[in-house]
Nucleic acid binder design. Structure first.
Length: 313
DNA sequence: GCGTCCAGGTCTACC
DNA sequence: GGTAGACCTGGACGC
């Protein structure tokens, strides 16, 4: 049976509540490695995601209609993914989000054929590398990307956690969803500066949220855009707070890997691995991955994170 | 505990 | 088009 319903009793603080849950299954695409798909980059470490590596469970909290939140759980079960979600959430909503987050409908065969002949990347296909986890909405990925710019990962985590705690819809378990554009647009730059600790990014967060809430910016349209990647990149660069790195990072999340999204960490890793520890000009890094064509952004990411996979395998 | 320095990516003003 | 400086935070370090 593909779908089942059950009632579970959960303790929340001092109270016990009965929750109606349903579970259903999705076929795992050939080559998908669950842990590698989840941990392929840092998103799994940011709320409203949480990952229990021992239990092999990815949890995500999502706001229904922007108000009421619910948490769902994804875990591998033989050749399938098992998804458990509150019954009140329509299966279509959850399934579409899970497909998007884990890129279940995205093909990587061409990338793996290219990497098969490269000594540094021949391992990628066998470990299902390259599936960069993404959020349920492009808006969430956009805001998180701004929070990764010009700061340490610990500060990114802090900003995203503060945003979720302060503005995200709460579900009965206490988990919170990522805030909607409307919720964020209702707050001033001072709020982001003083409460979220976003520093100079505060103006960008307020402006982007306002733009999305008012319809001036439509991040979801980027996902299905027919624009060539350079043109789409120009669109992304129009958003305040999005520069070259952030635009190319977002493009990767949108499934376009033409750009390298070079940041200081990638440059340092490249220097260490391919340039005898000396800083390499961006042009040299670009030449190194040029042969991967439209997949070069994924090629550099897999190359630079290869030891993450060897540690987990 | 306090002060100083540094890393990090983007924006703006200027050349 | 290219470049310098400002933006702001947390962490590292020295005192």
């Amino acid at each position: 049976m593909d779908e089942d319903l059950r009632f579970v009793f959960l303790r929340f603080g001092t109270t016990i509540q009965c929750v109606k849950e349903k579970s259903f299954y999705l076929k795992i695409p050939a080559g998908l490695h669950f842990e590698n798909a989840v941990c392929g980059h840092g998103w799994y470490d940011l709320p409203p995601f949480s990952f229990d590596s021992e239990a092999r469970k990815l949890r995500y909290t999502f706001a229904i209609d922007g108000k009421k939140a619910a948490t769902w759980t994804i875990s591998p079960s033989k050749e399938r993914l098992r998804i458990i979600a509150p019954a009140e959430m329509g299966r279509g909503v959850v399934e579409n989000a899970v497909r998007r987050m884990l890129r279940l409908d995205e093909g990587f065969q061409e990338f793996y054929e290219l990497t098969a002949g490269d000594p540094s990347l021949a391992w990628a296909a066998g470990l299902g590398a390259g599936r960069l986890l993404r959020s349920a909405t492009v808006f969430e990925d956009l805001i998180k990307t701004i929070c990764t710019t010009n700061c340490s990962w610990s500060l990114t985590r802090k900003m995203v956690a503060n945003l979720t705690d302060a503005l995200g819809a709460e579900c009965i378990s206490g988990n919170r969803a990522f805030p909607t554009a409307e919720a964020m647009a209702a707050r001033s730059p001072d709020f982001y500066r003083n409460e979220i600790r976003a520093g100079y990014r505060s103006d960008y967060l307020a402006e982007v949220a306002e733009g999305v809430a008012s319809g001036m910016i439509d991040p979801e349209s980027w996902l299905v855009s027919d624009l060539p990647t350079p043109e789409l990149k120009k669109e992304l660069l129009k958003v305040k707070g999005i520069g070259t790195y952030a635009a190319e990072h977002l493009l990767k999340l949108l499934g376009r890997y033409d750009g390298l999204a070079l940041d200081s960490w990638l440059r340092a890793r490249f220097a260490e691995k391919h340039n005898r520890g000396r800083p390499a000009p961006d042009a040299k890094i670009a030449r190194h991955y040029k042969k991967f064509g439209k997949w070069q952004g994924l090629a550099i990411w897999c190359d630079m994170t290869a030891d993450w996979f060897s540690e987990k395998s």
